[in-house]
C-alpha cells in the first residue's frame, strides 16, 4: 500500500491521491524493475500497463527513501522525458525566443525537487505531484515561463497601438469574447477558444489581464461596494485604468482577429 501523503491543504486536510493513482501504485509496488521500466515508458492511458505520472513520482520517491540510487537514476530520466514531451506542447519553439532553453531550465529545476526530497518522509513539494501531476507541474513551470517571457518581452513584436479602431470591429470582439468565454464547458469550441486566447496572449500583459478578468472570469471593472472583488481591486488600479486597458486591448484584438480572418 502506498505511503500516505503528509502535505495539507489550506483547510488543514491531508492531500490524498485519486483512487486510480492509488490502484496503479499498489499494482506497481510489487513489480520488478525491468517490468516497471517498460511500463513507465507507456503513455497511452488505454494501455493496461500505463503508469500515470503521479505513480512514477511515487516510485522514484520510494527509491530515494530506500537509497536505491540505481533505480532512482533509471526512472527519473524516464519521468523527465515524459515531462519534456509535455513541455514541447506547452512551450513550443514558436512560443517565445529560446524556448528550448526555457524547457531545459524547467526540467533542470524540476529534477532538483527529487534530489532535495527528504528520505525521512518529511513534507515536501512532491506530494502535490502524487495527487495531480499536471496541476502541480503547471504551478512549477509557469513562474519560470513568465520570468522568461518578461526577460524576452522587448524581443517580441507586439501589435502597434492604434486608437482609431472602428466601433463595429470592437463590438464584434466584445461579442466574440462573451460568446466564447460564457459557454457551458460541454459546448466549448476548443479550437475557436484557443485561437482567441492566442490573440489575447499577444497583448501586453496588463491588457490581457484586464480582458480575462472581465470577460473570462466575469469580474466587474470596478464597484462602489468596497468589499466586492473586481478587476480593479485584483490589479490594484482604478476602474478607469481597467477601462483604458480594455479599450486598448479591444483595438488591438480587432486588428489581430481581422487579420487572422477569425472575427466574422
Amino acid at each position: 500500500m502506498a505511503r500516505a501523503l503528509t502535505k495539507k491543504d489550506q483547510d488543514g486536510n491531508l492531500y490524498t491521491r485519486p483512487a486510480f493513482v492509488e490502484e496503479k501504485i499498489d499494482g506497481a509496488l510489487g513489480q520488478d524493475l525491468p517490468t516497471l521500466l517498460r511500463r513507465s515508458q507507456v503513455t497511452q492511458k488505454s494501455n493496461p500497463d500505463f503508469l500515470p505520472l503521479e505513480c512514477l513520482v511515487h516510485l522514484i520517491r520510494e527509491f530515494r527513501r530506500q537509497d536505491d540510487q540505481h533505480a532512482m537514476s533509471t526512472f527519473l530520466p524516464v519521468l523527465l522525458r515524459r515531462c519534456e514531451s509535455i513541455l514541447k506542447s506547452k512551450v513550443p519553439d514558436d512560443y517565445l525566443p529560446m524556448a528550448e532553453d526555457v524547457r531545459e531550465e524547467i526540467l533542470g529545476e524540476f529534477s532538483l525537487l527529487f534530489a532535495e526530497d527528504n528520505p525521512q518522509g518529511a513534507t515536501t513539494e512532491l506530494d502535490y505531484y502524487e495527487c495531480k501531476f499536471f496541476h502541480a507541474f503547471r504551478t512549477f513551470r509557469m513562474p519560470i515561463i513568465e520570468r522568461a517571457r518578461a526577460e524576452r518581452e522587448p524581443l517580441v513584436s507586439l501589435p502597434a497601438e492604434d486608437k482609431s479602431g472602428e466601433e463595429q470591429d470592437i463590438d464584434e470582439v466584445l461579442s466574440r469574447l462573451s460568446e466564447e468565454f460564457r459557454q457551458p464547458a460541454t459546448q466549448i469550441n476548443h479550437a475557436s477558444r484557443n485561437e482567441l486566447l492566442r490573440a489575447i496572449e499577444t497583448l501586453p500583459r496588463d491588457q490581457a489581464k484586464a480582458v480575462l478578468l472581465c470577460y473570462f472570469f466575469g469580474f466587474s471593472e470596478e464597484s462602489e461596494d468596497p468589499s466586492e472583488t473586481t478587476a480593479a481591486t485584483l490589479c490594484d488600479v482604478t476602474g478607469r485604468t481597467i477601462r483604458n486597458r480594455l479599450g486598448r486591448a479591444m483595438n488591438a484584438l480587432s486588428k489581430i482577429l481581422k487579420k487572422e480572418d477569425l472575427c466574422q
Binding site: 515524459r82 503547471r138 509557469m142 476548443h190 486566447l197 489575447i200 480575462l212
Partner: peptide, 19 residues
C-alpha cells in the same frame, strides 16, 4: 497564466509530443 496556457491545449500526455 493558467487561462492563457489553455491556448496550447489541455494538460494531457497523450496530446503532447511523442517521447
Amino acid at each position: 497564466s493558467i487561462v492563457l496556457d489553455l491556448a496550447r491545449g489541455e494538460d494531457d500526455e497523450e496530446a503532447a509530443h511523442a517521447i
